[in-house]
Design a protein around this nucleic acid. Structure first.
Lengths: 230, 230
DNA sequence: TGGCGGATTCTTGTATACAACAAATCCAAT
DNA sequence: ATTGGATTTGTTGTATACAAGAATCCGCCA
């Protein structure tokens, strides 16, 4: 590790269609989803065949993954998967704690009306899917909620860093949501946070965001501890 | 923007000697040092001739710079320099403020004896070069001081992020040091911070680091305001 | 003269070819 | 049988070749 922070903010709609980016995103998700566990040796030839591309775009994708810290390219040897370890997730959460607070504080000061309605809309949708127990949708909306806050902070580096974090710990966040009752609790905490932001109370928003992230993290750790205990 | 965070932590000693990395580092520094201002169109052919390499390693370097946010690659069009704007520097400092605090707190809890002596050694060297008014050396030692703290935090993502920040705002930090009296003030603040860390006082260390970074930032802004006023 | 269209040229995107290095294999000699 | 070394094989690093799109330039026509 670690980490690459491309500007994912605008690539959300229409990903550029050149082979390099397609391979990069696919490989990134493959690694993050555990298809290639840490330590796996990636040979260019195999990946080329799998993706049906030549070595040039594939190598370019590997370069980017190396910068992002997901693989390590050993000269004349090849690429080995580093992935995201549990330690990495813990470390990232330690950072996220403070930065979510910062983002919320800045958002409370700088948010626009459009962004506020966007947040409300997102929470309404979240409530809908919480009732339907659709974890994937909830996760997606959770990402959206936090991204809008980061966007509202008007701090571009902060937003792209947080976006990257969110992507890296996607699996962990999903696991956290499987805890029964967690989704509705998340929704409630988001509501309070939005309230503080809309009132322009940066101090409160910062604390709420910090506590919220902390709860997600603790929830995750308790789940991991359970898993270990078995 | 923004941002790439390769693991610079170990590349300090012997950079890998393949062309891609050499070109990447050279181009990165060229952009950060202002050789290629924002908006510059980078044509692969020209860069190839300049570096004396073929398009393959050059393109790979450009891919990495794109991930880092320093250039934007427009499909079928080429790469344009984004660079680091003054706004970016401000945004980065907003993040740095909280993260330097976090790093110092963690370091206070986890620092080893070796790292402590390393910090002391660094400060002694800094004092030497402050007396000699060698700004480049001071800047280098400043980087080293903060990097050891990040290393002592035992949080790898945090360390590589801070390393990347340090690299990105290198020019700004250098400018800040040109303020007469700033170097010795910096040294004094570093001493206090080291003292707090060595005593294991995380809370104090966190505050000192925050305030220190804040002073650097304010100092920089006042210099920029002066420059604008002219 | 000004604007439109096509051809040319230039640049990027992708694929392949060649070179250098690493590892594995195989043979021989002790 | 084991070890040493040379050869072979395979992989990566780099360079070049080819294809496709963009921009430019020139000439033609209104």
């Amino acid at each position: 590790m670690f980490i690459g922070l491309p500007d994912r903010t605008q690539s959300g709609s229409g990903a550029k269609l050149n082979l390099r980016n397609r391979v990069f995103q696919a490989l990134e998700q493959d690694i993050l989803n555990g298809k290639y566990p840490s330590g796996t040796n990636l040979t260019e030839k195999d990946l080329c065949e799998e993706f049906g591309v030549s070595r040039t775009p594939l190598r370019e994708a590997l370069c980017q993954l190396e910068l992002e810290g997901l693989v390590e390219c050993i000269p004349n040897k090849g690429a080995v998967v580093l992935g995201v370890s549990e330690q990495d997730v813990n470390d990232i959460y330690a950072i996220k704690l403070t930065l979510e607070g910062l983002a919320a504080r800045l958002a409370a000061e700088r948010i626009t009306q459009e962004e506020l309605t966007d947040l409300e809309e997102t929470l309404n949708l979240t409530e809908f899917y919480v009732n339907k127990d659709d974890l994937n949708k909830i996760l997606e909306l959770d990402s959206r909620f936090h991204d809008v806050i980061c966007k509202a902070s008007k701090n571009r580096p902060l937003r792209s860093m947080m976006g990257s974090f969110h992507n890296f710990i996607k699996v962990a966040r999903h696991k956290s949501l499987t805890n029964p009752g967690r989704p509705s609790l998340m929704l409630e905490e988001h509501r309070k946070l939005l309230d503080a932001i809309s009132k322009g109370d940066g101090e409160l928003a910062s604390h709420l965001a910090f506590d919220h992230t902390n709860r997600v993290f603790n929830n995750l750790r308790s789940l991991n501890d359970e898993a270990e205990a078995e």
